[in-house]
Design a protein around this nucleic acid. Sequence first.
DNA 1: GAATTAATTGAACGTTCGTTTTATTATTGC
DNA 2: GCAATAATAAAACGAACGTTCAATTAATTC
Lengths: 215, 215
Amino acid sequence: MARTTGSDGERTEAAVREAAVNLIARCGYEAMSMRQLAAEVGVQAAALYRYFPTKEDLLFTLMRDHMQGLREAWEHSRPAGADPARQLAAYVRNHIAFHIGRRHATHVSNMELRSLSPDRLTQILRMRTAYEKELRSILRDGAEAGIFSIEDTGLTAMALIQMMTGVIVWFRPGERLSIAEVTETYLSMTMRLVGARMATDTTAPRVPSDAQSML
Amino acid sequence: MARTTGSDGERTEAAVREAAVNLIARCGYEAMSMRQLAAEVGVQAAALYRYFPTKEDLLFTLMRDHMQGLREAWEHSRPAGADPARQLAAYVRNHIAFHIGRRHATHVSNMELRSLSPDRLTQILRMRTAYEKELRSILRDGAEAGIFSIEDTGLTAMALIQMMTGVIVWFRPGERLSIAEVTETYLSMTMRLVGARMATDTTAPRVPSDAQSML
DNA sequence: GAATTAATTGAACGTTCGTTTTATTATTGC
DNA sequence: GCAATAATAAAACGAACGTTCAATTAATTC
């Protein structure tokens, strides 16, 4: 056999990416074999090399797209010109929503960095640093404006990001808490952590809560 | 050649463990080969099997000892009978000190869980859960006593642990901040996060800050 | 409908992996 | 100093790995 009926490059590539994210998140990049991935997609291992020249290229592509997606999500949801408290609230909401929605991809991007070649590692880390810099800048603005009380901006930013990203470790959709509940709790923990004076209202323009309320 | 002059089982095993922690932390468990590990120790691969029957046994031993060390460290540093604020302060200090002191081992214990067999994974997770339970119980006590104001005890515990453990991702000894500075900043962030009323003094019996002050 | 291109198979290549076996030497106990 | 034991080397095993290549068939173009 060779080309199969109904085969389509775009669909196959998308299937490979999705299966790879799930497999790498579950087994780890090194432990996932190309044959295993191919079997998941329903194809022979050699077919994968039509879309990704090497295994590492596949990993890098997944990571790069994930980081670009994160940046774009933040660019679309940032309230330009708003006060620091509102900006911080938007950052927290976006971060948690994005990471809960893409748990597996986040796992891959955070855990498999060491399997990248040095210059590709640098590329991904640069994207990550740029994203984190946004948070530091919000914290600095708020501290200078006297809205937040923060001892060390850089350290606080790292603490917040670790705390928020950590959601993906334990959160499982459909369990005790809804995404909305988790997000709001994290938001209030964040605001307390940065010592925000809560004169300003940090809640987003009220969206009718659709799929929450499951307890 | 066979047995080398001056060879000693205990020393070799200790060297294997240390080299394994460092190698696994750097390259990952799957990516580390037994030959690579043996070379690091200065021995042939076959010699490793005198001490650990399989590669996974080695990993499990490292993880189990790490978790036991964490439990023992907490048992020695917990202030039994103290108020929740003091207990929380002790928990934070112990957690950060322990994890900064054993960055590589923590990395291994957190990142390589998926390489364990199901029942060994369960063993390690049980130890971890027991340790986390201590924190939840402190938070609950404090909340019930009206010392902390916490929305969700379980969620707050996970957020705090993720935040604190995250130190090992970015902290490098000898850089901008000393361990003592980092620890105290994290402590005050923690206290704000749980909404602690700071009537009680949470500072430890004052130790003269030795190797800090490098800025 | 013939020629071209896209998508995939199946087999193979050389390497490396975890592990086992056997032999050999250092150390220890008597 | 001689037996027993502890610690290692050296070589080998089969399996699995990432990757390549030639062949083959489906879809598209003209």
